[in-house]
Simulated assay, not measured.
Amino acid sequence: MKKKIVFIILVAISIFMCFPVIFLLAGSFMSVDELNSYLAPVLAEKSKGYVSWGLLPSYPTLRAYVELLFDTPEFFVMFWNSVKIVFLSVCGQLIVGIPAAWGFARYKFPFNKVLFTIYIVVMLMPFQVTMLSSYLVLDKLHLLNTHGSIILPAIFSTFSVFIMYRFFCNIPESIIESARIDGASELIIFAKIGIPLGMPGIMSAVVLQFLEYWNLIEQPLTFLKDKALWPLSIYLPNITLENADIAFTASAVTLIAAIIVFFAGQSYLEQGIAASAVKE
């Protein structure tokens, strides 16, 4: 009986937590008139009352999807901007972060712990703290108002190093020593043992960083002045009654990519979160 009660409570909480997604998907299939009737108290000028909402659309329509996907070229421009930023950022993080995490995890050198602590401190700093210094550096490098202003700082993200570091630390030392006795070089050990055994950590870092950079808002608004360079995450900064249907649809389409990546790497993501929770 207790298990059934706990199960019911968990299901209720899950539905409550998923309601924003249900709200979004339902709105993407509603007509403009139906959305106006629901959202007018918030979006219309000089309106009174409270917002109401139907869990399911009264008259489902795909008109907003057709208009967005076939008659909104700026949507695809921003979509490919997001793909470019995310792909280059994540690839750069792997190129820089994997060797860095391996070095911190497997080699003992002076100030190892101090440097890794600095890594963690940098990871804890919010963007608002480093925004001014980053802006000045990027200005000196003539990268402002280019995608490089987003990609270059992302390549040297400390969070992916932190996640992969935990997995590399868990590789048994006996395996490394056996490979050295057999004559394997440090590069071969890294490529043939470190990367394969640390792949769960690498993949969890990829998933987490994809979700982060797919949903960037502050960095593009700060460093990109040309709207043609904006990513999809800030495609609709202003929602009005006239474009409410497109806003819901664009948000739903944007969410699909994040959901696909999340479920594809869910097991790795869980391992990464669990590993990051383990104390040094």
Rank of each mutant, 00 (worst) to 15 (best):
A44G: 04
A12L: 13
F29C: 04
F29S: 01
V161Q: 11
P99N: 10
K227Y: 12
L25Y: 06
P73Y: 09
K113P: 02
F263D: 03
S204M: 05
S157E: 12
L187W: 13
V206G: 05
S14H: 03
V86E: 05
F162P: 00
Y65C: 00
V90D: 09
N243W: 08
F75G: 13
I150S: 10
V96E: 03
I95F: 08
A258D: 04
V83S: 03
E67N: 15
F156A: 15
Y135A: 10
G198R: 06
L224N: 07
A12C: 11
F70D: 02
L187F: 14
F167N: 04
M203C: 13
V253T: 07
A274K: 15
L88C: 14
K108P: 09
M17F: 13
F87Q: 05
K2P: 06
S251C: 09
N112S: 13
P231D: 04
K48E: 01
V122L: 15
F16I: 14
F79E: 01
S89V: 13
A191S: 14
V32F: 05
Y38D: 04
E34S: 05
A191N: 14
L136W: 11
I217T: 08
K4C: 01
V32P: 02
L216F: 03
S204R: 11
M125C: 09
F127E: 00
Y165M: 05
N170G: 13
K113Y: 00
K3G: 10
I22Q: 05
I9D: 00
S185P: 13
V77R: 13
L136I: 12
I193N: 04
I13S: 12
G92I: 11
Y165R: 08
P99V: 09
V66L: 06
A205D: 03
I273W: 00
T130Q: 13
A275Q: 11
L55W: 02
A179R: 06
L69C: 12
G27R: 10
A26W: 07
